[in-house]
Amino acid sequence: MNTANDLLTIRNLTTSFRIKETYHAAVEDVSLSLKKNEVLAIVGESGCGKSTLATTIVGLHNEVNTKVTGEIHYNNQNLTQLNEQQFNRLRGNDIGFIFQDPLSALNPLMRIGEQIAEGLVYHTKLSKQQRAERVLELLNQVGISNPERVARQFPHQLSGGMRQRVMIAIALSCKPSILIADEPTTALDVTIQAQILDLLKALQSETETGIILITHDLGVVAEMADRVAVMYAGEVVEEAPVQELFKNAKHPYTRSLLNSIPQTHSENERLEVIQGMVPSLKNLPREGCRFSARIPWIDASAHERKPQLHEIAPGHFVRCTCWKHFHLEGEEGGGAV
């Protein structure tokens, strides 16, 4: 992988949680990179390790029960080696973070306006008056229609989507060079979602921010991403430029993911379901291909023993060799996945 103009480089990252006496990897041997001005989307089934990856990058894990190996390079530092104090300096200033669960990220006892202003105190030279104005401006930008009122309210007095937007306002307030957004628009309706996505784009063109966008919404991916990494059971199983992924996905998991999108013309039909489920951490197969249990119609001997990421087109990586045996949609034999 070319690292010269990378903003962030992740190499062989593994994050494990302790369950009783043993550690189980929730993210395993992940290597990814992010460039300036780029949106890297991370998609994958619930529980596949997306949030774990994100919180590992920003160093937000409880050290007692978590083990991290591998490297995360940003600005000539290896983030996995930083102590809490060094991380605090990075968070907010260089790296903005939007949590999946806004309620746990906001201080329940502090008014919204104060929470947004707090970051501005540390990271800007604005006067008190200017900060108050900036707070209202930020709330307005994230589509909150009565910023004065909301600035005076406490987190529990806001709706789910309003909280999510407050957190986005906090993350954007300091114009970070890397933004990690974990499901930033799940609680938002489509019009506000579009507004937020436009806002992220605007930030990007102003400050060349690199964005890691975690989402299960393929509409958002299609709207925003330059590149997409698909995770399954802790591993990256496919990585490709966005158009290539939508047109030419090869891994059976990615293909079934694309097949399960509810079409707006469907009414009342049953939705396409990928049979089976992501195994829990303890029961993850640690050998062979982790997806094989869910495609029983393929003969066991056909799979690679330990599938590696293969580059099958420029920038398109797939952790599977068997795709060559499938009959893909549009080809003779019809979709097998």
């Binding site: 089934e45 299960h216 079934s256 939705l271 489920m277």
Partner: peptide, 13 residues
């Protein structure tokens, strides 16, 4: 809304 499409489909079904 917090679920990926495949689980979404399972739950809706």
């Amino acid at each position: 809304s917090a679920l990926d499409l495949s689980v979404q489909a399972q739950v809706l079904n």
